[in-house]
C-alpha cells in the first residue's frame, strides 16, 4: 500500500473504507466495538495516524489507540479537522 497526497475528503465514509482496508476485513464492522477484536494492531494504528497526517489532520498514535472504535475515531477526526 502506498500513501500519497489524497484528494479525497476525510469523512466517515473514507474512515470506514480505510479501516476495512487496513484490517483486510470484509465487514461489516460494529462502529462501537473495539477494533482490536477485528485484528487491529499497533502498526495499523500507526499507519492510519500517518495517513491522516498526510491529509493535514494531526492525531497521535495514542489519540487513536486509547479508544479504538470507528465512532471514537470519527469524532476525533471531526474535532481535529476543526469542525
Amino acid at each position: 500500500m502506498t500513501l500519497t497526497a489524497h484528494p479525497e475528503t476525510v469523512d466517515r465514509e473514507w474512515l470506514e473504507a480505510r479501516v476495512v482496508a487496513l484490517l483486510e476485513d470484509e465487514g461489516p464492522i460494529d462502529p462501537a466495538e473495539s477494533l482490536i477484536y477485528y485484528g487491529l494492531d499497533s502498526l495499523r494504528v500507526m499507519k492510519l495516524a500517518a495517513e491522516l497526517k498526510t491529509h493535514g489532520i494531526t492525531v497521535s498514535f495514542e489519540d487513536l489507540a486509547s479508544e479504538p472504535t470507528l465512532d471514537a475515531w470519527d469524532a476525533l477526526i471531526a474535532a481535529r479537522r476543526g469542525g
Partner: peptide, 8 residues
C-alpha cells in the same frame, strides 16, 4: 478470513 481471524 481477514485480520480478525489471524489476530485471534
Amino acid at each position: 478470513g481477514g485480520a480478525r481471524h489471524r489476530r485471534h
